[in-house]
Nucleic acid binder design. Structure first.
Length: 451
RNA sequence: GUGGCCGUGGUGGAGGGGUACCACGUCUGGUUGUGGCCCAGAAGGUCGAGGGUUCGAAGCCCUCCGGUCACCCCA
C-alpha cells in the first residue's frame, strides 16, 4: 500500500486526551445547569432524512448542509445542521411518549460546510436547551436564564445578552412599506449595524433602492439601538419610545408587548441587569424564528477574542407544525461551546484541579521479578476506585518518574525489595515532593488523601 | 464563493540566488532506589506539490494543494 500523509477534513479536529478532559468539564458544567432547570437529556441520530432538514433554515443556510449519500442508498440522507430541527422531528414522532411542556437539552456535534475561522468549525458541538409547548413568555425568559447561568457557572461575566423580536423587525418593515425580498435585505443590512455603523447601514439601504425618506424613518427606530447601553431601565424606555412611533402597526406592538414580558420575567429571575440588552438592530439569520430572538456576544475588546456570538436562539412557533397537524409554540437557545472553549483556553479559565490525564497513580515496576507485586498493588488501588497505571516495559526508576511527570500523573507508588520485605509501599506526590511510607493495608486510603 | 497574507526536522521560528540554521521536544550518557535544573553527545529535513528561469532555487516566476485572516454567514 502506498503511504498517505495524514490529514484532517477541513474545519474538523482531533481532540487529544487533555483537550477531551477540558471539554468534558465544560459540557458537564452546562449540563448540570440545564438539569437544575428541569431539562431532560435527548439524543438523536447524526443523520437525518434530507426532507427533514430541507426548507427549514433559509436558502443561504441550506447550501451549507452536508449531504451523506452512499452509493445505491435508497434514502436521501444529510448530516444534521443544528439540533433544533431534529428536536422538532423527534418530538412530533415521539410525542405520544412525552408530555407537555417538554423541556430537553442536547449536547452533540453538528455539521456545517462553512469556511473555517477562529472559533468556527465544520464539525462543532452545540448545547441546546428548548422548551416545547409553552406559549407564554415565561418560557423565553427561562431559556435565557438557563443560558446566562451556564455562562456564569463557567466564569463568564463580560457578555451582553441581546434580545429582540422578529415581530418587531417585520413591523418596522411594514411601517417602512417593505415586504418580501426588500424586507430580507433590510434585515441583512440592519444586522450589520454594529459592524458598519449607522452611516454604513443608511448607505446600504439607499443603494438597495429604498427611498431616502423611508430609510431615515427606519434609522430613527433602530438607530437608537446602535448604542450598547444595557439594562432593564434602558429596555423599558426604548420599548415605550418604539410603542409610540409604531402605534399604527399591530404586529410591532405585539412584539413589543412580548419583549416587555420577557424582560419582566428575566428581572424576576434575577438575571443581572448589566447582562441584558434590548437591541432592535439584532436580527439572526435562521429562517424559522417567529418571535423573540436572542444572541449573546462577548464584550472583550481583545481582537483575538472576537469569536462571533456565544449564544443564539429564539422562539419558533411554526417549526414543529411542519411535522404534525398543528403547530406547537416552542422556544430554544443554543450555547456556542466551541467559542466558549476558545475564550476559556485563552484566558486560562479552567479550575486548577482539572488534570491532564485520567491516571491518578503510577505504580512503578522495580524490575521484572517485582512486576507481580506491582500488579497486585494496582488491583488493590483500583478496587478503592482509583485510576491506576502500571509502568509498561523496563526502565530505570528515574525514567518512570520522568514519565509520570511528563504525563501529569500526580502520584507515584514505589514498590521495591525493601518495601516488599517490610510489607509497605512508598507514595510520592510529584507536585510538592511529599513522600511517605505506608503499610499495605492503608495504601489506598492514604493515596486518596494525597490526591 | 471572492480577496490579502503564510507553508522550512515532531512543534515554533531565522534564512529573500552560492555547503540548511536556532530554540523547544525526542533519544543516549553524566546519575543502575526518585521527575523538573545543569552538562556532554546523538538522531531527525526530497524547505507544501508540480512545472519554469538559472551554471546553481528553500529563496525568483507560474499552476495547484493546504493553512490563516477579512468579506458573506454563523455557535
Amino acid at each position: 500500500m502506498e503511504k498517505i500523509t495524514p490529514r484532517l477534513p477541513s474545519g474538523m479536529r482531533d481532540f487529544l486526551p487533555e483537550d477531551v478532559l477540558r471539554r468534558q468539564y465544560v459540557i458537564e458544567t452546562v449540563a448540570r445547569v440545564f438539569e437544575a432547570f428541569g431539562y431532560e437529556p435527548l439524543q438523536t441520530p447524526v443523520l437525518e432524512l434530507e426532507e427533514t432538514l430541507l426548507g427549514k433554515y433559509g436558502a443561504d443556510a441550506e447550501k451549507l448542509i452536508f449531504h451523506a449519500q452512499h452509493p445505491g442508498g435508497k434514502e436521501k440522507l444529510a448530516l444534521r445542521y443544528d439540533l433544533t430541527v431534529p428536536l422538532a422531528r423527534a418530538f412530533a414522532l415521539q410525542e405520544s411518549k412525552l408530555s407537555l411542556p417538554f423541556r430537553r437539552y442536547q449536547i452533540a456535534p453538528v455539521w456545517r460546510a462553512e469556511r473555517p475561522q477562529r472559533g468556527r468549525y465544520r464539525e462543532f458541538y452545540q448545547c441546546d436547551v428548548d422548551c416545547v409547548g409553552v406559549e407564554g413568555m415565561e418560557a423565553d425568559a427561562e431559556v435565557i436564564s438557563v443560558a446566562v447561568m451556564a455562562l456564569q457557572r463557567l466564569g463568564f461575566s463580560d457578555f451582553a445578552m441581546k434580545i429582540n423580536n422578529r415581530k418587531l423587525l417585520t413591523g418596522i418593515g411594514i411601517y417602512a412599506g417593505l415586504e418580501g425580498e426588500a424586507l430580507a435585505n433590510l434585515y441583512r443590512s440592519i444586522d450589520k449595524l454594529d459592524k458598519i455603523g449607522v452611516e454604513g447601514v443608511r448607505d446600504e439601504l439607499i443603494k438597495g433602492g429604498i427611498a431616502a425618506e423611508t430609510v431615515a424613518r427606519i434609522m430613527a427606530l433602530i438607530g437608537s439601538g446602535a448604542t450598547t447601553e444595557r439594562g432593564y431601565a434602558v429596555a423599558e424606555r426604548l420599548i415605550g419610545h418604539l410603542r409610540e412611533t409604531l402605534s399604527g402597526v399591530p404586529l410591532a406592538l405585539e412584539g413589543l408587548a412580548e419583549l416587555e414580558k420577557v424582560f419582566y420575567y428575566l428581572a424576576a429571575s434575577e438575571v443581572p441587569s448589566a447582562l441584558v440588552e434590548f437591541d432592535p438592530s439584532m436580527v439572526r439569520g435562521l429562517g424559522y424564528y417567529t418571535g423573540p430572538i436572542f444572541e449573546a456576544v462577548s464584550l472583550s475588546a481583545d481582537p483575538e477574542e472576537r469569536v462571533g456570538s456565544l449564544i443564539g436562539g429564539g422562539r419558533y412557533d411554526e417549526l414543529i407544525g411542519l411535522f404534525r397537524k398543528t403547530p406547537l409554540p416552542t422556544v430554544g437557545i443554543s450555547l456556542g461551546i466551541e467559542r466558549l472553549i476558545v475564550l476559556m483556553e485563552k484566558r486560562g479559565m479552567y479550575p486548577p484541579h482539572l488534570r491532564r490525564t485520567v491516571v491518578q497513580v503510577l505504580v512503578t515496576v522495580f524490575n521484572e521479578t517485582l512486576r507481580p507485586a506491582a500488579l497486585r498493588l494496582a488491583s488493590q488501588l483500583r478496587a478503592a476506585g482509583l485510576s491506576v497505571e502500571v509502568f509498561a516495559g523496563g526502565a530505570k526508576l528515574g525514567k518512570q518518574f520522568a514519565y509520570a511527570d511528563k504525563r501529569g500523573i500526580p502520584l507515584v507508588a514505589v514498590l521495591g525489595e525493601d518495601e516488599l520485605q517490610a510489607g509497605t509501599v512508598k507514595l510520592k506526590r510529584l507536585s510538592d515532593q511529599h513522600e511517605q511510607v505506608v503499610s499495605g493495608a492503608e495504601v489506598s486510603q492514604i493515596a486518596q488523601k494525597l490526591l
